[in-house]
C-alpha cells in the first residue's frame, strides 16, 4: 500500500488542507458582531456532517475491506467491527473499542482458516 502522488503534490495537499482547516476554525471568530450566529439552515447541515462522514469512513472498512462487499463469515472485520461497535456504544471509550476490535480480529484470524 502506497500513494502514487509525488512528494510535491503531497506537500501541496498537506498545506492546502492545513490552510483550509485554519480558515474553517477561524471563520466566525473575526466576524463576530456582524453575524451573531450561524444561519439555522447551515447549522442543521453542520450538525449532521460528522455522523455522515464518520459512517462513510467506517462502513466500507468493515463491510468491504478488500474493495468488494463481503457479508460472509470469512470477513473477520465484519464480526470484529460489530463487536467493537457494541463496545463503542456501551463505553464511549476509544481505547476499549480498539482493544476489543483488534482482539476479536486476531482471535478470528487464529480460528478461521
Amino acid at each position: 500500500m502506497a500513494t502514487a502522488l509525488s512528494p510535491v503534490v503531497l506537500w501541496a495537499v498537506i498545506l492546502a488542507a492545513g490552510v483550509g482547516t485554519y480558515f474553517l476554525r477561524l471563520s466566525f471568530i473575526p466576524l463576530f458582531g456582524r453575524f451573531e450566529q450561524v444561519p439555522p439552515r447551515v447549522e442543521r447541515v453542520l450538525r449532521l456532517v460528522p455522523a455522515a462522514v464518520l459512517a462513510a469512513l467506517v462502513f466500507p472498512a468493515i463491510f468491504a475491506p478488500d474493495g468488494q462487499v463481503a457479508l460472509s463469515i470469512d470477513n473477520a472485520r465484519l464480526l470484529a467491527g460489530a463487536i467493537a461497535g457494541v463496545v463503542a456504544w456501551r463505553t464511549e471509550n476509544m481505547v476499549a473499542t480498539i482493544v476489543v476490535g483488534m482482539g476479536t480480529l486476531w482471535a478470528l484470524g487464529a480460528v478461521l482458516p
Binding site: 464518520l54 467506517v58 456504544w89 473499542t97 480498539i98 476490535g101 483488534m102
Partner: peptide, 13 residues
C-alpha cells in the same frame, strides 16, 4: 490498518 476504522467507529457512535 484496522485500528483506523475502529477509531472512526468510536468517534461515530
Amino acid at each position: 490498518d484496522f485500528v483506523v476504522p475502529l477509531i472512526f467507529l468510536s468517534l461515530l457512535v
